[in-house]
Design a protein around this nucleic acid. Sequence first.
DNA 1: CACATATACGACCGTTCTAGTCGCAGTTAT
DNA 2: ATAACTGCGACTAGAACGGTCGTATATGTG
Lengths: 146, 146
Amino acid sequence: MFKLSKKADYGLIAVKHLALHRGDHAFSANEIAEEYGISATLMAKVLQKLAHKSIVAAKHGSSGGYQLSKDPSQISALEVISAIDGPVLITSCVTNHGNCDATERCSVKEPLRRVNESILNVLSSVTIAQMSSEDPHEPSLVALRT
Amino acid sequence: MFKLSKKADYGLIAVKHLALHRGDHAFSANEIAEEYGISATLMAKVLQKLAHKSIVAAKHGSSGGYQLSKDPSQISALEVISAIDGPVLITSCVTNHGNCDATERCSVKEPLRRVNESILNVLSSVTIAQMSSEDPHEPSLVALRT
DNA sequence: CACATATACGACCGTTCTAGTCGCAGTTAT
DNA sequence: ATAACTGCGACTAGAACGGTCGTATATGTG
């Protein structure tokens, strides 16, 4: 019911960690997992997905690990989330791919599509760089114009 | 992964239906369910939840049914969704209720809280009345100020 | 070259959440 | 009184998610 998966959560934590330690050596999944008290194997799995989408770069071998492949200001929260959880769709039938058996009759499809768009806007406007800035009294990352 | 539950979907459909037929007789769960090809018992369950939160008013007995208890412009999508699915929280630990075992170390909690707030804003700014207006070329219900 | 250490990948379980059903009690119009 | 309807809670089946494990593979080091 409208919740981020834990894996996406972990992904954001990992990416933010890498952003804060940019320029340092590569971090192994183990290292990051220990830092936040998360299962190492699970963190590895999450990082694999991020590597697959080229958000982080994996380096094999001993003293290997992961590094950001882009600048933190160029990575949006949406990228990280959808890399792990797949595309963000608030309903199953916003994509017109006909999985909704009542496409004709369903009257809320179009309004929800617009809401979905708004949420995508919110998520894509938040960058990892913003999430890493420690400024706590920034009033609000995104505000609404009605 | 960030999806509206089907029940919330059905709830929105039902509320919108009632909004469009305001002033008519009360609609039974059966009637609405048939109209959209949805399981009647499930629709009944959804409407019960909406009635519990006083979004719709139930009328017992024969020729009974449901009616909106408020003006469609006074009902937000957020109200309907959270009535059915519970509070909208994108992570399990935004509420400070300490179910996150790594509250200290978790570095993404605060940024995500802000994102969550933005989404709540989006959802609460969309009313049933807006969803019922048939204007298709309204550019966007909500836009972003960055 | 051989070894230690790292990721890559996929199969695999247990638990939790969701969709959907059923039966019974309570309420109202006729 | 009775028929038709909702209210409500327990219940089942199935999918999704969180998390683990084992194996294959790549790489730096002695």
